[in-house]
């Protein structure tokens, strides 16, 4: 009985150890799920302006919430997709100051699997937005950042953080 008991324990331990082998799971969702998450119509809900240079220097007065300064909530951004890939975009400024220099054209991303930047293009004009996070079931907001750079020194001076909701 004692031998059977030890054998049972060894077998159980062996089963436990071998059962702990990591399984390889395929990523949930398709390749272009993040593109799909970004696509569609978005309404601007929050605008923050950051003085990047003052922040770098450690000065006071580095951020300002502009949401209620102008009618930013009237601005709507739409990212269209075609066959799961980025295609065209439109920005209806409403009565808000423009957030980019172009209001329509094509959009693209740096990496379709995990995009970090969105490029808006209309003719020779190109504008870049940095993604702050993908909209998902937990956080449905689209967050993008537009950085303004000193043309003479290439130093970032101002950053605008835009938060959108469906």
């Amino acid at each position: 009985m004692k031998t059977i008991h030890y054998l049972t324990i060894c077998l159980a331990a062996g089963l436990l150890i071998t059962s702990c082998r990591p399984d390889s799971y395929a990523p949930i969702g398709g390749t272009n799920d993040n593109i799909t998450a970004i696509s569609g119509a978005w309404k601007l809900t929050k605008v923050t302006q950051t003085d990047v240079e003052s922040q770098r220097k450690g000065f006071p007065y580095t951020t300002e919430d502009l949401t209620t300064v102008f009618n930013y909530t009237t601005l709507q951004l739409t990212f269209n997709v075609s066959n799961g890939a980025p295609s065209t975009f439109t920005i209806n400024n409403g009565s808000a100051p423009p957030i980019t220099g172009i209001t329509s054209g094509s959009w693209s991303v740096d990496d379709p699997k995990s995009p970090k930047t969105i490029t808006l293009k209309n003719g020779t004009v190109t504008e870049t937005m940095t993604l702050g996070g993908y909209p998902n079931s937990v956080n449905s907001k689209l967050k993008v950042k537009v950085t303004r750079i000193d043309a003479a020194t290439n130093k970032p001076l101002i950053a605008y953080d835009y938060e959108f909701s469906r």
């Binding site: 302006q49 003085d51 300002e64 502009l66 101002i158």
Partner: peptide, 23 residues
Amino acid sequence: PLVFIPNVLRVFPARVGQNDVVL
């Protein structure tokens, strides 16, 4: 200035362009 100097009149952001929101 490389150090912050308080002023009666101050622009935010400290350096702005023609398309920026100026406070």
